[in-house]
């Protein structure tokens, strides 16, 4: 059984314009799926619908077999967590520890278990030395890693990252993507972005354009679809453009060059 099943999902903020139009897909347990698309393509709307922050009567969402509705939302929220774009908007505690504890306290987790989880997840994101620090004094990358630890502490099976790296500097991006990569084995991950180089962390890519799915493929194939990606306002990877040029011009040692270019794409 797929852990996420979306059937004919449609959503409108205003009468005139569809944010999502008849979107259907399934995600298996343990998959890492990137959702990409232009500004306003519907990718964040989809993320919010999946975790019940938005609701619609048009179409259905099944999380681990449970149909998302008013009655099931609490149950579903125990299975799915979301990390947003701006870490500054996600802080509530005066220390890092407090902050990670917040969601746990709301769920009446007992103190020993809470301590254990805080330590465990702060360590996973590499922030265990900062537990007593004020979140305000952290860098963007550090803040975002604390936000991830807070969501991890809820021990949900599914994690959604909604442009989680778009507001932090390049070093911070590395810290955060390394933390996310380390979760691959245990979690089902939905990674929303418009940076194609980050999609290579995952197994599969879904491209949204004006609220509709225009591509849903394994990452190796998806990343080569230059026309679809360009038409969706995305920027094909330089490596793929070079592979195209190398082959088109039948360059010497093209097989070797192509191999290195693929490795180079996956390195990041």
């Amino acid at each position: 059984m797929a852990i996420i099943e979306v059937n004919n999902l449609t959503y409108r903020y205003t009468k005139k314009k569809y944010a999502l139009k008849d979107v259907s897909f399934k995600i298996e347990r343990g998959e890492f799926v990137s959702i990409v698309g232009h500004n306003g393509s519907g990718k964040s709307t989809l993320g919010k619908l999946l975790c019940g922050l938005l609701q619609t009567k048009h179409g259905e969402i099944l999380i681990d077999g449970i149909k998302l509705s008013d009655d099931t939302i609490d149950e579903v929220r125990q299975k799915i967590g979301i990390v947003f774009q701006n870490p500054d908007n996600q802080f509530v505690g005066v220390t890092v520890k407090n902050d990670i504890a917040f969601g746990l306290e709301n769920r009446n987790i007992d103190v020993d278990e809470m301590e254990k989880r805080i330590k465990k997840y702060a360590t996973i994101v590499g922030m265990d030395e900062f537990l007593d620090k004020n979140p305000e004094n952290l860098s963007g990358g550090q803040k975002q890693r604390v936000a991830i630890a807070s969501v991890l502490a809820m021990e949900t099976d599914i994690l959604i990252f909604d442009e989680a790296t778009s507001m932090i500097d390049p070093l911070g991006v590395k810290e955060v993507t390394n933390a996310i990569k380390s979760l691959k084995e245990e979690k089902t991950i939905i990674y929303i972005t418009h940076n194609l180089d980050e999609t290579l962390m995952g197994d599969r890519m879904i491209v949204l354009k004006n609220g509709e799915i225009v591509l849903d493929e394994k990452i190796d194939n998806a990343i080569k679809q230059k026309d679809i990606l360009t038409n969706s306002n995305l920027e094909p990877l330089e490596q793929m453009e070079l592979i195209e040029l190398v082959n088109k011009n039948n360059l010497n040692r093209k097989e070797e060059v192509e191999k290195v270019l693929w490795q180079s794409a996956y390195q990041k």
Partner: peptide, 8 residues
Amino acid sequence: TVGLDPKG
């Protein structure tokens, strides 16, 4: 350019 998609 923060927050803009690649085309933007």
